[in-house]
Nucleic acid binder design. Sequence first.
DNA 1: GTGTGACTGTGAATGTATTAACAGTAGATT
DNA 2: AATCTACTGTTAATACATTCACAGTCACAC
Lengths: 207, 207
Amino acid sequence: MDFSKVPLQTVERLSRYRRVLADLQEDGVESVFSHRLAELMGVTPAQVRRDLSIFGSFGNVARGYDVVELHGTIGRLLGTDKLQTLAMIGLGNLGRTLLTYRGFQERGFHIGPVFDRDSEKIGKVYAGRRCYSIDDLETVLPDFKCKMAILACGSSGLDAIVARLADLGIRSILNFVPCRVIPPQGVFIENVDLSAKLEKLSFLSKA
Amino acid sequence: MDFSKVPLQTVERLSRYRRVLADLQEDGVESVFSHRLAELMGVTPAQVRRDLSIFGSFGNVARGYDVVELHGTIGRLLGTDKLQTLAMIGLGNLGRTLLTYRGFQERGFHIGPVFDRDSEKIGKVYAGRRCYSIDDLETVLPDFKCKMAILACGSSGLDAIVARLADLGIRSILNFVPCRVIPPQGVFIENVDLSAKLEKLSFLSKA
DNA sequence: GTGTGACTGTGAATGTATTAACAGTAGATT
DNA sequence: AATCTACTGTTAATACATTCACAGTCACAC
């Protein structure tokens, strides 16, 4: 499986397929056709078949796709079949909210170590996680074997932090800080910019 | 200006252009060439010129783009040149965090009325906003003249709430609830699914 | 003036994603 | 067993987005 030629849009849809399949599984549905899956996803049936066929031939002409099997397959593809531990940088309002966000736990993500530069917070425990100093990144992080990190800190010195994370083996980053960070070689950064989303909506609703 | 033929991707970039231009303005830069703007944005110069040319001809061969003027123009295009009031549905962890999120205020967005169905919360004041019952949506919302809303509630009965919002004149919705909502005619819905983003990163970092 | 260099705005070319359309197939029906 | 139906996987067609490449323009130098 050559991951590099999977359309990015397809990757984004994979987790939605998985969620839809989980619901179907919950309801005891054993198999599903591309039409129904498409309807639940809000895309075309052709899109569903194309997306899935990229990874292999899972469907059956008579019965469609096996719900349990496909759910498992997508989980393995996404790497969310086992628990993953994330590091978090920044314990402001947003950071603390994410610590207790149920959505992460439900999908197999767990925030392990948290770091901040505020000496008020360092050493204290938030939602069961001890807060470490950002200065101790190099000594603390390796113990947790994280491959992913969340940035929910201030924008100053962000590039340096990202570089250090990359050196420590972090492969991908979910970034809530609204400023451009240039990804180091081999590191994926996914930006979440809520204000930008609102501005987009503001524009679209004038049409 | 025919908004319908503006590429969606361009719309998403508009707010980033505006942010970059705001920084340049802060630094006292008067004008900027597409090359520099592209560098700050992390895109190609051709992309910058194409994006901007969709809305008109703002550039000057000798001086490039006037920073103040372009910043203002994009603001007007996005509709963020004046303060906009948003309604919020749901006052859980996430909702309360968004109430105090500085990013919104900075970009001209202000959360006005908040609604919940939990009688514990109704009538209380959070970050300066009184919480109303979701049952009173029709009587309370019109006073605030909101065109946009944020969904940060549970998933049950979501379609009904969206339909009521649409009837009350809401044109666009920022949805944090991880389930598909079919947009009523004329309503734009932008979904924010944090777990999906992590799953995407998980996939990409296996490549 | 005239020439030079570097820019913008844009048509044409390329790349990427989605949709249409159909060949091949497996079960159900007669 | 022959026929019918409705599906998948995939090829071809279309739509959408980005990049290339250049004509036209302006400031400046000589």
